[in-house]
């Protein structure tokens, strides 16, 4: 198995990892960096549980070859924590609006919401629904999730 060293910025820190060239970003985050917030649901880009933000864009880390991470800036759910250990406003909004049921989709939902709100601080409901159109919640708690993101956008103003 051919390995290679990649360097990138992960949640604000410069990191390097020597991993098999065929690994994807999700596996690298979970098995090498032990950041288990991003989940593997389908492993095929259909569920969004593995969503992380790469250079400002939400991507499926299960379909992102780790070799493409070289030089990129990557943010995972673990990177949202404030320096004082407090929650990010989007996380607060999910808690306050019952946006979490079983929780498996939550980190992906929140990372999709983060990519949206960083680009568009005042999204319409349609913008919000489009932003999470690649994230499946099998508890079907979509209404509360949309409300959570809407609430977060207002709190972040």
């Amino acid at each position: 198995m051919k390995t290679q060293t990649v360097s990138f910025t992960l949640n604000g820190e410069s990191v390097t990892a020597t991993v098999p060239q065929s690994w994807n970003l999700l596996r690298t985050l979970r098995d090498h960096f032990e950041l288990t917030g991003a989940k593997e649901g389908c492993g095929e880009g259909e569920c969004g549980a593995c969503t992380v933000v790469v250079d400002g864009d939400a991507v499926n880390s299960c379909l992102y070859p780790v070799m493409e991470a070289e030089g990129k800036t990557i943010v995972t759910i673990e990177g949202l924590e404030k320096t004082d250990g407090g929650l990010h406003p989007i996380q607060d909004a999910f808690l306050n609006n019952n946006g979490v049921q079983c929780g498996y989709c939550t980190s992906g939902m929140i990372m999709s919401a983060k990519a949206l709100l960083d680009k568009n601080p005042a999204p319409s409901e349609d913008d919000i629904r489009t932003s999470i159109s690649g994230n499946i919640c099998r508890c079907t708690g979509y209404v509360q999730i949309v409300e959570s993101i809407d609430n977060a956008s207002k709190m972040m103003k």
């Binding site: 880009g45 939400a58 991507v59 499926n60 999709s112 994230n135």
Partner: peptide, 9 residues
Amino acid sequence: VGCVQLRNV
């Protein structure tokens, strides 16, 4: 196409 995450790459 697909969803936001897929369209981004």
